[in-house]
Design a protein around this nucleic acid. Sequence first.
DNA 1: ACCAAAAGTTAAAAATACTTTACTTTAAGT
DNA 2: ACTTAAAGTAAAGTATTTTTAACTTTTGGT
Lengths: 70, 70
Amino acid sequence: MANVPIKNKIRELRFFADEMTQKELAELVGVTRQTIMAIEKSKYSPTLEVAFKIAEVFGQSLEEVFQYEG
Amino acid sequence: MANVPIKNKIRELRFFADEMTQKELAELVGVTRQTIMAIEKSKYSPTLEVAFKIAEVFGQSLEEVFQYEG
DNA sequence: ACCAAAAGTTAAAAATACTTTACTTTAAGT
DNA sequence: ACTTAAAGTAAAGTATTTTTAACTTTTGGT
């Protein structure tokens, strides 16, 4: 599992969103800074719930934030 | 966390897809039948990876299969 | 150069997702 | 009514995600 990591555009979206920091995003999402770090770097993929919350913060669809390459 | 469970249309999509069984879906997705059961009944929400795979099986977008109510 | 905030890393513990096995109940066909 | 596949439940174990805490490195401003 986690064969092909899911890519994401969190970093780009953070900077596009007025240079939002990892800490700020973490607080808005309700997870820790380290969790955002790990997800942003594709160390592992988040739960669906966290993924939805991240997309919500940026006002984007889930697919715009996360890209799964089957 | 997991305050408001994420809803899904897996059951409807299975029946729409030629009455696909939980077992068949599980095999296509690469998880067990019990995992499909738990997700279908919103006992817990899947990882993003499993969510993407389920959507892929039905040829639907993630948001069409799973609905997050912030 | 110095300072502070942000980002990155690591390790151990806690929480949650997933598996395996085994059993019960429901639904459908003959 | 009987049989069988499908669906539902539950417990214990494994795997993965998330937290906490502590420390290092990078970046930007003054």
